[in-house]
Design a protein around this nucleic acid. Structure first.
Lengths: 245, 245
DNA sequence: CGAGGGATTGAAGAATGTCAATTCGTGTGG
DNA sequence: CCACACGAATTGACATTCTTCAATCCCTCG
């Protein structure tokens, strides 16, 4: 066992978010196998990169605590945030294709990360049907979420985008046993705008607008959802045409 | 062997686009195994659905010839096209997560399709490392492409989007041994607009604009790329700020 | 030959971006 | 411990791209 493994030992067996992570479908003995290939190192601090574009792909990463953003850089150096990631989620899956990371992953706060050597994971997956299934599911889920995001960016107004974003975060926090009503944004307004395809100023204006409409309360990075109903309506059902009348 | 398998028998071993499809990394004997679980049925005709949202997920589908579009419907019934698919590509991967299709796949022209029972594929993948790897790669690739599309929708102007779309199509045709300069659009202008997050009118205007600039030649559904250089520049490097000056 | 969807083109309007100024908050260094 | 500096956030005024609406044309397919 490596030193790093000892030092930051939190085993999958006792990990609080294992039910959201790869071990979900595994028997106890299987979890031990998985655990044995997982590498844990010192926490990644805010602003540090977990991986960068063009780096060789070796591991996928499971988030144990904290939060990350992943993003790509276009040829002209423009940052495009492709996702925010919470505990239990797996990042780095976009690198499998050609063994090189196409994107960056950066910590939004100090975060604990499990590195999982992908080649070993593949081998294990062949022996453990449940693990293979779970990997497929996680990847499938990501494809689906990206599609939903596309829908959001393509068809929805600025109001709808931000509402959907907040609802989405709320639900994800809830699944992790945190409050769905009050939560902390670890990303900047600029990050949110970048992710949603909006100017920072627009995001800022919307926050105040939502606050005036008593949908949410915002104090710096602390968001309180006051009217989840209306916010959901805004996020989901209303469309350009209807909204206008 | 089922009747359908006989009737439309084109085996993976002799399939012209197998190098773009799942068999890529397999030994000949392995391809035979894969081939034995693949189901081929009568071609899907233009406008017919390969699968629809909420249907139970059983197969992923490989496209042998023709083209498809996949799309989702929002709660308010708005169509959002999430991709156009060419021979060699696999569709239905977004359904693995919860055994239900979240999206629709519709033929844009008469298309030959291979249905691959996913449960059988999973079993096979455990026995054939190369197959498992290829499935992972295909899924990873899709995640990556969705991210690129997000970048496109989020950060690029209408001109850049259409240019990128045309370049992308051109490259994909080229990989399939077709002309990268002259090709046929099987989707409508409306489809293109939907996919790129633009109004049909905008797409139409851009086609004429590109034509005036001698970048392309368009005659109905037939596109000829005249100046791939400039078009690539437009698609990739130029950014809002620079372009404005 | 007629009908209907697809495509094109023009004119006007709206949503959002851009620019600019100010405030706020936080972390750093003296 | 305070002052400063710098990035983040907010707010206002203006600019612009793209959408929306409307009319017309075209092509295909019954």
């Amino acid at each position: 066992m490596s030193q790093t493994t000892n030092k930051y030992a939190v085993h999958c067996q006792s990990c609080s978010i294992s039910r959201l992570c790869l071990p979900v479908m595994l028997a106890e003995a299987e979890v031990e196998h998985l655990d044995s290939i997982v590498q844990r190192s010192r926490p990644v601090r805010k602003g540090e990169h977990l991986y960068s574009a063009n780096e060789t792909f070796e591991n996928v990463f499971a988030i144990r605590s904290g939060s990350l953003k992943s993003y790509t850089l276009s040829e002209d150096g423009i940052e495009q945030i492709t996702g925010f990631h919470l505990p239990g989620e797996i990042v780095g899956l976009d690198a499998i294709t050609d063994h090189q990371h196409p994107s960056f992953a950066k910590a939004l706060e100090t975060s604990s990360i499990c590195a999982i050597p992908f080649e070993k994971l593949e081998v294990l997956a062949r022996q453990m049907p449940g693990l293979q299934q779970q990997i497929f599911k996680v990847m499938s889920q990501e494809i689906r979420e990206d599609q939903e995001l596309m829908m959001l960016l393509n068809k929805k107004s600025a109001d709808e985008r931000l509402a959907a974003f907040l609802i989405n975060l709320s639900q994800r926090f809830a699944r992790r046993g945190l409050s769905s009503a009050v939560f902390h944004l670890t990303m900047t307004r600029s990050d949110i705008g970048n992710y949603l395809g909006l100017a920072v100023e627009t995001v800022s204006r919307l926050f105040t607008k939502f606050q005036q409409k008593q949908l949410i309360k915002v104090q710096d990075k602390e968001v309180t959802i006051l009217d989840i109903e209306s916010l959901s309506d805004l996020a989901g059902t209303s469309c350009h045409f209807v909204a206008k009348k």
